[in-house]
Design a protein around this nucleic acid. Structure first.
Length: 822
RNA sequence: GCCGGAGUGGCGGAAUUGGUAGACGCGCUGGACUCAAAAUCCAGUGAGGCUUAAACCUCGUGCCGGUUCGAGUCCGGCCUUCGGUACCA
């Protein structure tokens, strides 16, 4: 008989909701535990397996902590601004606000059917002025501190979304992270947040948080710290100075030419006018290339000489200045000193253009005159470096930096690969940027008291490459806050990653209307203790949020240094090897499983499939296993209705008073409890469930033969352990055995009896010459002599030893006896 | 190219510090129940050899080598695959 999951699940969801069981008492931060999942984008599609795989297990963790007595806060909300809603409006004419609100309604209903312990009073959405005005406030605070600024720069332009993107939002193949269309470079004036000011701290902070090493490594690489020097080269016949950044100042004597980024402003100033045409032609030729082509490591080097010469400060040598697209304007100073002997790219370039290659570091085991067939980039002995010949190159590095500093032609320098965060978007459905452009006063921030700058409802949605707000007269035309004259608002909106960079604070008191968030609660509840979400945000949301958190701390709004103390990424559930997506048509709809098996079975199956962080390929093959497991549990528990009322359960049982069957089960339940705690704490749901299955199998064998006190003891613990994994089911069972209070309303947890964790006899493997020849059951901690005697009594062991010379015995207590014979 | 993860039965996957490989589940096979089927329950199930059967033997954690009494686990060299990154000076 199938247990009535539909009834049971509806019953307990109603109970939890009616009784506000999961409303968190925010005023009590003792034993607080902030458990967060990345909030949901309210698309028009239904919740899919990926959502369930994120939210179900995360809820299991939160419920586990609640049963353990923590004051758990687990909110859910909507990341409600963003392009899909606007693209949908372009296509259908349905306003993003209307479609988003409708989607939120639908998604809320679907979320509730999962049966998570969300505190629905803390729900928030980012697309309403009550929320986004604080993005504007944040913007103005950053602006005030010089950390929000506008500049003209080469930026990523998505040809599909018709807007600029941050570097983090361009995929490795040069396509848009969101829509997959090609991203091109454009020079535009855009708003940036100065995340680079926090580069060092963002790097250092990684050592203080419990995040997957993989993710931390990705952030480290993304920040890309490199230590070296800046060196100034003068230019022959000019007052201009070329500053280069190099990690290899030890190779300065090997410089044979300079390379500038083709777009570098110095090029026009320095170039020989006779070469102007050639330079223009070169610039044109690379403009036609896509970003991928231009940055491909396999592309052959190109470039031209600009007819000017730089002077090397260490030896006053005159070297030609080249331009080449392998030098990027956006990294370092946009100028490179070229040392072909000791840099692979320079080597390749020099070979192609017949530029001199001068060795200044000798590879150990070779000599100064041997020809280089490739750049030598390791440590060696200095040559051709004047007075410094004979030094080791790594020591020389320090020496030359000091030498440069003393002469004011260079200094030690740390450089980061991280660029500032481009936050403006030429789209409608986002937070308006609170800046007014005045013909007389220039760029003027909107006064904080005039916030919010509301997003107007009536606009034309056409992806023209310009924000739809620009053609909305009632919005764009305004008066200058400074001089009162006619002025225009900034037409752009903010990247939606601004919304998500501080939402975890807003959840704590989402209705507060005189501050961005409740600072006191923030100090009590931050950081988030457990954050669960996808790994795809490693260098986007998860980096931005850390930056904004540190900024908020610096303006006195937070005490802790990091937003997310522990981070876990759920793996990806694929279908036939491919990521599930609507366009591929391979999305698995959870609905039929919910109808046929119930929410509890479905979430449990997702957890049982394998390690949470690995994800895996979808198959519904095994779901009957978890279904049968709950069914068998249900049938067993139904045999003991109200048992709790007729017994008194001791905290512990004395082993000596138990029968063999009782002893076995008593040990098993305690051992399971112990393992279960460790497993859930470490997000190993699959093995926790396996342990419960083992326990159920043992209960099937021996529960009926136990005394009633022990039966109740075992059932109580068993149901508690099931509760985080199958919450509706466990509430029902809790009631069946006679509990009057809901388990989640009145959390209960236990401690394992340490005595029961230890077995009094153990299986010991007996090997002969390393091969398993038998096992024996011995008393715990039995010594070598006892075990050996038992082993030799076994025919299977003895026959491998007889007639041979036993010369060594290796014995590991309670584990193994290895007999070596000749 | 570089950085990181992963390769274990027919399948998903288990295996403290090196110590009985394959827990748990699916599937499959046989049996019970049934007029029959489904569901459920019980038993078996890594491969091969030998045997009426049991016992027993050999091989087995991507490949090749090494360390060790003993390697899925440690070391060296590869292969496959999935992520990340892409001339970062």
């Amino acid at each position: 008989m199938r247990y009535p999951h539909q009834e049971i699940e509806a019953k307990w969801q109603k109970f939890w909701e009616d009784n506000k069981v999961f409303k968190t008492d925010m005023s009590n931060p003792d034993k607080k535990l902030y458990s967060l999942v990345m909030f949901i984008y309210p698309s028009g599609a239904k919740l899919h397996c990926g959502h369930w795989y994120n939210y179900g297990p995360a809820d299991t963790y939160a419920r586990f902590k609640r049963l353990q007595g923590h004051n758990v806060f687990a909110p859910m909300g909507y990341d409600a601004f963003g392009l899909p809603a606007e693209n949908y409006a372009v296509k259908t004419g349905i306003h993003p606000y209307d479609s988003t609100m409708k989607n939120i309604e639908d998604i809320r209903a679907q979320l509730k059917r999962i049966g998570c312990m969300y505190d629905w009073d803390a729900e928030l959405m980012t697309c309403v002025p009550e929320y986004y005005r604080w993005n504007q406030w944040l913007f103005l605070k950053l602006y005030e501190k010089g950390l929000a600024y506008r500049k003209n720069a080469p930026v990523n332009w998505c040809t599909g979304c018709q807007t600029v993107l941050a570097n983090e939002q361009v995929l490795g193949d040069g396509n848009c992270e969101r829509c997959g269309n090609i991203v091109v470079q454009k020079n535009l004036t855009q708003w940036f947040f100065k995340i680079t000011s926090y580069a060092e701290e963002l790097l250092a902070g990684l050592d203080t948080i419990k995040w997957p090493e993989k993710t931390k490594l990705m952030q480290r690489n993304w920040i890309g710290k490199s230590t070296g020097a800046e060196v100034q080269f003068t230019v022959e016949g000019s007052d201009e100075v070329i500053t280069v950044f190099t990690t290899r100042p030890d190779t300065l004597f090997g410089v044979t030419y300079m390379t500038l980024a083709p777009e570098h402003p110095l090029v026009d100033k320095l170039a020989d006018p006779a070469r102007a045409e050639e330079i223009a032609r070169y610039r044109d030729s690379i403009k036609a290339l896509t970003e991928i082509e231009r940055t491909s490591t396999t592309k052959e080097k190109t470039g031209v000489a600009i007819g000017a010469y730089a002077i090397n400060p260490v030896n006053n040598e005159r070297v030609p200045i080249m331009i080449s697209d392998y030098v990027l304007l956006t990294y370092g100073t946009g100028c490179v000193m070229a040392v072909p002997a000791h840099d692979e790219r320079d080597f390749e370039f020099a070979q192609k253009f017949n530029l001199p290659i001068r060795k200044v570091i000798v590879e150990p085991g070779t000599d100064a005159d041997s020809e280089l067939t490739a750049a030598y980039t390791e440590v060696g002995t200095m040559v051709n470096s004047g007075e410094f010949n004979g030094l080791q190159s790594d020591e020389f590095k320090e020496v030359i930096i000091n030498w440069l500093s003393e002469r004011s032609v260079g200094q030690k320098k740390i450089n980061y690969r991280l660029r500032d965060w481009l936050i403006s978007r030429q789209r409608y459905w986002g937070t308006p940027i609170p800046i007014v452009h005045c013909p007389t006063c220039g760029e003027v921030p909107v006064p904080i008291e005039s916030l919010p700058v509301e997003l107007p409802y009536n606009v034309e949605f056409k992806p023209t490459g310009e924000s739809p707000l620009a053609s909305c007269h009632e919005f764009i035309n305004t008066s200058c806050p400074k001089c009162g004259g006619e002025a225009k608002r900034d037409p752009d909106t903010m990247d939606t990653f601004v919304d998500s960079s501080w939402y975890y604070f807003r959840y704590l008191n989402p209705k507060i209307n005189d501050a961005m968030f409740d600072v006191e609660r923030g100090n009590n509840w931050a950081p988030v203790d457990m954050y669960i979400g996808g790994a795809e945000h490693a260098t986007m949301h998860l980096l931005y949020a850390r930056f904004i958190h540190k900024f908020l701390r610096d303006i006195g709004m937070a005490k802790c240094d990091e937003p997310f103390q522990t981070l876990v990424h759920q793996g990806t559930i694929t279908n036939q090897g491919a990521k599930m997506s609507k366009s591929k048509g391979n999305v698995v709809n959870p609905d039929e499983f919910i109808v046929n098996y119930g929410s509890d079975v479905f979430r449990m199956y997702l957890m049982f499939m394998g390690p949470y962080e690995m994800g895996g390929d979808w198959s519904d093959k095994g779901i009957t296993g978890t279904d049968r497991f709950l069914l068998r549990s249900y049938e067993l528990i139904q045999k003991y209705p109200g048992i709790i009322k007729s017994v008194t359960i001791p905290e512990k049982f004395a082993l000596e008073n138990l029968t063999d069957a009782e002893k076995t089960l008593y040990r098993k339940v305690n051992q399971t409890f112990d393992k279960y705690n460790g497993d859930i704490d470490n997000i190993r749901f699959n093995t926790a469930i396996a342990a419960l299955m083992e326990l159920l199998n043992e209960m099937g064998r021996s529960l009926a033969a136990c005394n009633a006190d022990l039966q109740a003891y075992v059932l109580e613990r068993y149901i508690c352990m099931l509760a985080p994994l199958a919450p509706h089911f466990a509430e029902e069972c809790w009631e069946i055995i006679g509990k009057e209070k809901s388990l989640f309303a009145e959390p209960v947890w236990f401690t394992a009896d340490p005595v029961a964790l230890v077995e009094d006899s153990v299986n010991i493997a007996v090997q002969v010459n390393g091969k398993l020849r038998g096992t024996i059951l011995a008393a715990k901690d039995a010594d070598l002599e006892t075990v050996k005697a038992q082993a030799l009594a076994q025919e299977s062991v003895r026959k491998h030893i007889e007639g041979k010379d036993l010369f060594k015995e290796i014995f590991v207590k309670n584990k193994i006896l290895n007999l070596l014979v000749k």
